[in-house]
Amino acid sequence: MDLLFYLSQPFAIHALLAASLVAIISGLIGPFVIMRGMAFAVHGTSELAFTGAAAGLLIDGNPILGALVGSLVVASLIGFFGVRERERDSSIGVILAFGLGLGVLLLSYYRGFATEATNILFGNIFGVSSGQLWLLVVIALAVIAVLVWIYRPLLFASVDPEVALARGINVRLLGVIFLFMLALTVTEAAQVVGTLLVLSLAITPAAAAQRLSVRPLTVTLLSVAFALVAADGGIVASLISSTVKPSVFVTTISFAIYIVVRFVLGPNVRKSRARATA
């Protein structure tokens, strides 16, 4: 009964809506993140969303706007310093280290509630206001629209850049566009699970999905489904428990899906495929 009561409350509805939107865009970009070897870029932009959030908090009391601006600045920096894969990770490391230090410095000047800081790190999905929800809707729709539009060339550029270039695809531009989509997604995901745990929505579902299929589109759809189960399931579980933060459940469910797929479902799928071709 408690759960049904909670589920009729605006804060819970907002939370579920926000989590679903975040799950959809995280699940969509996840397979590309893995294909492009950008897990570290996800981690880097999310950690630096923290710096942006700290700055936003200090200047205007608005961590989310700060995180958005911060992650876009970081995406530009990564794009500027290293588009090539080999340069990229080291430049992310360089920016990450400095940015985190800056974030800590900024927070030390902040005299507000300490929970604001932990909310950035571990998420505050139940605190989503309707204004933030609208922003999230706009961002999610934009990311989905762009991704649907560039899906095929982005896939081509991600797995086969040399031929993609010869086929007239602007591989570099697509890389930069993807970086910005990633930055936006990561910032929004940080609201649900916090900047420290973004990988649980942006990587884990996709990593599980690609154990179950070798079709790019199927992997993408599975990745979205897993992210939705983890994000919404985590919120519902948190409503039931009422003491544990949703991000704990989100990461746990996400991890559990991965484990089941990796060690139970995945091996069977591969076996049956091997049988089918033998």
């Binding site: 539009w149 560039i150 095929r152 060339p153 896939l155 086969d160 031929v163 086929r167």
Partner: peptide, 9 residues
């Protein structure tokens, strides 16, 4: 991809 990988939308 050789056939339609370069097409947007």
């Amino acid at each position: 991809m050789g056939l339609e990988g370069h097409r947007y939308g």
